[in-house]
């Protein structure tokens, strides 16, 4: 009986990290979405300067381990604004994810047939209007499957924000493990939580995919 009581205590303790993990993941994905879409647009439709800028962002950020980006951004941002570790960590993770998302959206923008742009211009839309109302909605739908994959990767990368002191699921498991010296139980529970989150994410995205699939 004692065993189950301990298990429940441990689970409750680790569970508090769940909200942190979810928060970090949602903020990072949203920030990464904005970065990714904007950079992909600049890459596909921008002038030479913006194309180079967006390409450099993508290449450099993807070349560096995410944990290094988090660490650097935390301390760089810290010089200008005093963000809490949660915000600094999440924004940094989003900045990193943005580079991966920009590649996803770039591919999606490029796979929208060129006739869509021509037809949009032909009814008098400006280039910006055409991108906004015709190309972007199609590109987002085309990007959904790959984006779903990125979402689960960001969920797992959310463990990295602990380097700047954000107590997410994995850190809570470490804390329990350090106290009880029962790593199997602590990390086993963490594993179950991550599994549940990943399955949930996958389900939601599959639903979105079905709901918004483009029929060509």
């Amino acid at each position: 009986m004692d065993f189950f009581q301990d298990l429940a205590t441990t689970f409750n303790f680790i569970l508090q990290g769940l909200w942190v993990t979810i928060g970090v993941t949602l903020v990072a994905l949203s920030v990464g979405f904005v970065f990714g879409v904007v950079m992909a647009m600049l890459r596909v439709y921008g002038n030479a300067f913006f194309r180079a800028l967006a390409a450099a962002y993508s290449v450099i950020v993807r070349a560096v381990p995410v944990v290094v980006i988090i660490f650097i951004l935390f301390f760089v941002i810290a010089r200008f604004v005093n963000l809490s570790p949660f915000w600094a960590g999440s924004l940094a993770l989003g900045f990193a994810s943005g580079a991966y998302q920009s590649e996803i959206f770039r591919g999606a923008f490029q796979s929208v047939p060129p006739g869509q742009m021509t037809a949009a211009r032909a009814i008098g839309m400006s280039r910006v209007q055409a991108i906004q109302s015709i190309i972007l909605p199609q590109a987002v739908r085309l990007a959904l499957p790959a984006w779903g994959n990125e979402a689960t990767l960001v969920l797992k990368d959310s463990t990295l924000v602990f380097v700047v002191g954000v107590p997410e699921i994995l850190r809570r498991a470490q804390q329990v493990s350090a106290r009880t010296l029962e790593p199997f139980i602590a990390f086993g529970l963490a594993l179950l939580l991550y599994l549940a989150l990943t399955l949930l994410t996958t389900q939601v995205l599959q639903w979105l995919e079905r709901r918004y699939r483009l029929q060509m």
């Binding site: 021509t118 037809a119 008098g124 199609q138």
Partner: peptide, 20 residues
């Protein structure tokens, strides 16, 4: 040019309907 195109309707060989 955008204003000009509003006054000129165009129909394409392969339709180019907005798929979404």
């Amino acid at each position: 040019h955008d204003r000009v195109r509003q006054r000129i309707g165009m129909v394409f060989q392969d339709f180019n309907l907005f798929t979404h």
